[in-house]
Design a binder for these strands. Sequence first.
DNA 1: AGGGTTTTTT
Length: 927
Amino acid sequence: MNDTHPTADNATADPGLRELRRQLDTVSSRDFGRLLGRWRGLSRRADEGKLAALRADIERSVARRRARAAAKPPIRLDESLPISARGEDIVRLIREHQVVVIAGETGSGKTTQLPKLCLAAGRGEAGMIGCTQPRRLAARSVARRVAEELGTPLGDLVGFQVRFNDQVSERSLVKFMTDGILLAETQGDPWLSAYDTLIIDEAHERSLNIDFLLGYLKRLALKRPGLKIIVTSATIDTARFAEHFGGAPVVEVEGRAYPVELRWRPVDARPRDGMQQGSAEHIAAVLDEISHDDPRGDVLVFLPGEREIRDAHQLLSRRQYRETEIMPLYARLSAGDQDRVFKPGVKRRVVLATNVAETSLTVPRIRYVIDTGTARVKRYSQRSQLERLHVEPISQAAADQRKGRCGRVGPGVCYRLYDEADFSGRAAFTDPELLRSSLANVILRMLALKLGEVDEFPFLEAPDPRVVADGFRRLTEISAIDDARKLTPIGHTLARLPIDVQLARMLVEGEKLQAMRELLTIVSFLSIQDPRERPGDARQQADAAHAAFADPKSDFVGVLNLWRAYHDAHEELTQSKLRDWCSRHFLSFMRMREWRELHRQLLLVVQELGWKLDVSSAAQNEAQNARFAPPPASRGRLGGGEAFCDVAQNQKRTPPQPSPASRGGSESGAGQLYESVHRALLAGLPTQVGRKDEKGAYLGTRERKFQMFPGSALAKAPPNWVFSAQILDVGGRVWGMMNARVEPLWIEQQAAHLLRTSCRDAHWSKKRGCVVAYEQVSLFGLVLVEKRPVTFQQQDPALAHAIFLREALVRGDIESRADFVRANQRVLEEALGIEAKQRREGLIRHEDDLVSFFEGKLPGEIASSRALDAWYRKARPAEQAALRWSLDDVLVGGAALDAKAFPAALDMDVRVPRAQDAQERPLDMDV
DNA sequence: AGGGTTTTTT
């Protein structure tokens, strides 16, 4: 059975063609689409030669599929696992339905046995059985186990693929992978044609990847009737998955867990003054109770984070429980310390853990769970456009998952440090990640895959339209999409880079600014988990070790320093020496390797894109040797004075680009490189900037306030202007985590498309010979430039001309070669003399009248001395003469000879726009 | 003056 496209059954009269169409249903899924296309073409227009070729290709594909079927090993289920009892039902349901939901707790055996049941149901022949896992470690270890059970070497009939590691062969019937890999494959093969069956495991975790995949698969299922989909989940919320796929059957398989007794232990049940619910004291009190009943059973305590773990660790250690080890467990813990948890000794153990122990890691031998009922949860706040990391009460589902962690070796007891009413008031399920995240990445991927309107995509739960709009806005901010919300060339490039869009955007800019090498290093660092370790008993040593690489101006330069040192160590040292090197510098060996591998992966993509690392190999050598110089204190316009020459360029709203000076070599080369690197960073996160206020806090865009994170190398001497790669609200305090000193000019240049500019105080400048104004430039409320002189001509030519007439020509405040200007002033002086002699005020005409004298006598675009001179030189004598004042022109009637000639005109209020108007009315120019 | 949950990607 294979995919049959709805429009494919236009029956042809030709029996040969019809027979060939039937055969198409028995080809390999990978070839089906292409072969069907060729068949369609031939059924429209016959061609004997092509028909023969198609027949041959179809036969080859059918043969490949037969070979796969023949290679199937005998299938034996592990009868000790609960799922095996339901094997026949499951096989039948897979045969009869396109989508099946399997609900089973840990220990049910679903992950390892389901692929085998699929094989038994005839799957894996047309294409592979693809099994996804949320974590790389799980994908690999489950693959190993299933390969073993099927008696095949790993990578042969059973393979796996995770990032950096691909062990799948042509012969593979079953492929384990992370859900991220499957999602990534949609880009190269939208039909996912390598598979005839997909198993999405642990769907209840509802990660971004899983939610996106489930939406994608819902649509794909309609287009590929031959594709089978199995969704597995813990026994929670299975109805939602079944409903999502139009009423798929649900099979419930019991787990193999032991019963767990629940005991509620809120603070008020054990009155003690000042004891906070879930605090270290509270935990200690419950641990006392456990120890009293059973001093031997291992205990797993769930806490929200490292700090709480540290506090509890201190308090519990002081209490000196008999024959007991207290040990922390969290993701940032060094590999060695984590390993200790998995090798229990003779002593009783109390493991203080974060959420890692909820899903990612399984702590062995646990008999008791103490659940504080809280966790730190990351949420993207669309309103403040900020990531928040706050302690929140966990959902009922998460609490039950924690409870289950003590029922694996025998009956367990779970102590909840809250009461039942609290529990029943909680959310049933943890919010899916999709509803807690910025959607820029999801939307970019949807655009790249041409999935149509975001609000029509069949998500299990649709995201808030405001968050969708925010995602689009973020993509606009980095120029990934245009006004029509279509991908720009930049956007297409971002979609090809397997990292966060904003980080990918930095790479794109790094290429443009010729700082690819540095950006690859920084961006890959920002994509991995921080490799720096800070063990509780050696925090100062660790800080000192890390400080060796730090740069006082930029944490990113610090990253480059670290990379260089690590790179050298990697070249010179053996594997085990490198391990030593890492631990000496308090660096996680694994994560450093991850960094290197991601760097290499990005390097390959970048080479595919045809990007060059450097301008030339010469520049490359110099750049490598160049030390990073601090940004120059003042450059160009920032220095004032000669700055003015840049102004004209600024009018076009394209701030000056950096000089094309080579990046390497000289001192200025290093400064140039610093600038290029940080401007590239700004391009990815153009709004993550701030200016220091009097109190040392930073004022950022959108009225956002943040503080320099104390762990940043810049914390000792915070610069005036800062770029921060991550601004995080941690329990109400907002920190800029990784920072660098930048120039406001760089921000202006990289955020040119987001700026708001207003012009004020337009006036004539004799010195510069043109009309100027003061420009204020701001980025979402953050003023980047307070008061910068700019030529006013382009802003408002008519107003500039009017100001020119009044302030330059009428007042004579201009240096010009045009002789009429000085002549006019002499006339004016003469008139003033007459006024003085007659001792009468108001003999001289109102300035407005003098201005209107000039109106229409010279071209309206003239607003500078240069323009005036150029025109005047070529003007006809009559035109020149018309600009000269006589006493009549300057004096009120009666004072001059022919009073009758213009009586009334004198009193008329001829108004022209006046300079003050410009002062009163700033010109808003949205860009 | 002062410190962070977890996972994943062509």
